[in-house]
């Protein structure tokens, strides 16, 4: 009896572990920009704000692709389209992030620190 039950219990434990791994690894629950161990997600690209710079400061994306800005600085930032102010993030606090769905090629800057600039090219 014991010999037949042990493999069943072990199997259930393995299934539970596998289920937990899959549900906790759902892309939507992962912090955008967290590249640790995660496979590249083609649905979004990440622009890191660190040391008062956008990295990368120029990027090419597909129309409709999600562009996620991750603020790793200790100060607030604000991403705003340069020429017509067509879109803006509002304040992105230190440690925060913001997502923009790429709709048009845009030059952007930080409206708080006007010397910080970047470009998104939409194909």
């Amino acid at each position: 009896m014991q010999n037949r039950t042990a493999p069943r219990v072990l199997g259930l434990l393995l299934m539970a572990a596998l289920f937990y791994h899959c549900s906790s690894d759902t892309p939507g629950k992962r912090l955008p920009g967290d590249s640790s161990a995660a496979p590249p997600n083609p649905d979004f690209v990440t622009i890191t704000i660190e040391n008062m710079k956008f990295s990368p400061d120029s990027i090419e994306v597909k129309k409709g692709q999600q562009v996620v800005f991750v603020n790793r600085d200790m100060v607030n930032h604000c991403i705003t389209e340069v020429h017509t102010k067509a879109w803006t993030s509002g304040v992105i606090p230190a440690g925060g992030s913001w997502m923009w769905v790429a709709s048009q090629t845009s030059d952007y800057y930080c409206a708080i620190h006007a010397v910080m600039k970047g470009k998104i090219i939409v194909r």
């Binding site: 040391n51 008062m52 710079k53 200790m74 100060v75 620190h113 006007a114 010397v115 910080m116």
Partner: peptide, 16 residues
């Protein structure tokens, strides 16, 4: 070291 780039961005902004 983390503060240094912030100060440099402030300087560039002030110069602008």
């Amino acid at each position: 070291q983390k503060v240094d780039p912030t100060l440099k961005a402030h300087l560039a902004h002030a110069e602008m």
